[in-house]
């Protein structure tokens, strides 16, 4: 059996987490709260480091005064806690975050998910597989027409799309199961190998 306290705590944490599979219980609850607390402490430490490297040091060491703006914006998040009259302050930091997020979404979606996929679908219709790929993509896309008049053709094509989607889901599902099983094996070998040395490492 292992004499390492890290391994022991790790094993108890693993058993506690797995115990959820039977029922939510005291052990799970304990592990859950310890884990959430530890993870919160971890991200607080990372957040502190970010403030140090991105705000405090550039300000103090390099005289980079511009960082005062995001610091002020950050402080404005707390405005609503000082009365409803200050609730507007939160809108400014949020608009910065939302603006960046919306911009990044557009730039990431349009090339990787759109133009590259359109180009890859424009295949020569010389093999059955290519015909099926093009037809499958078009049918799937038809499923996502929300406002067009439901003519017989559109309804039929989008129904084919729904079938393609379901087969896609089935394929992804079956594909994932075996990968997930190997993860369980990894945890079992930790418990029986590293912890109680029942399996030779």
């Amino acid at each position: 059996m292992s004499t390492s306290i890290v391994t022991w705590v790790g094993a108890l944490v693993t058993i506690g987490a797995f115990s959820y599979l039977f029922k939510e219980n005291v052990m799970y609850r304990t592990i859950e709260h310890i884990y959430v607390g530890a993870a919160a402490g971890y991200v607080i430490s990372v957040g502190y480091q970010n403030l140090l490297t991105k705000a405090w040091r550039p300000l103090v060491n390099e005289g980079h005064w511009l960082v005062i703006i995001p610091v002020l914006l950050g402080l404005m998040l707390f405005g609503p806690y000082f009365g409803s009259k200050l609730s507007w302050t939160r809108r400014y930091p949020l608009s910065l975050i939302i603006g960046v997020g919306a911009g990044i979404t557009i730039r990431s979606a349009v090339i990787e998910q759109l133009t590259k996929q359109l180009a890859s679908t424009a295949l020569p219709l010389k093999t059955i597989n290519n015909v099926l790929i093009v037809a499958g993509v078009l049918a799937t896309l038809s499923y996502f027409f929300f406002t067009f008049k439901p003519t017989r053709t559109l309804t039929g094509v989008s129904e084919v799309g729904k079938w393609v989607i379901m087969i896609t889901f089935g394929a992804a599902f079956g594909n994932a199961i075996m990968g997930r099983v190997s993860l369980v094996i990894g945890r079992v070998s930790f418990l029986f190998g590293e912890w109680i040395h029942l399996i030779k490492q």
Binding site: Q113, L114, S120, I133, V137, T140, L141, I165, T168, F169
Partner: peptide, 11 residues
Amino acid sequence: LNLAGVRGIMI
């Protein structure tokens, strides 16, 4: 089939 479905959802 999987390729077609994923691509349609993605687009």
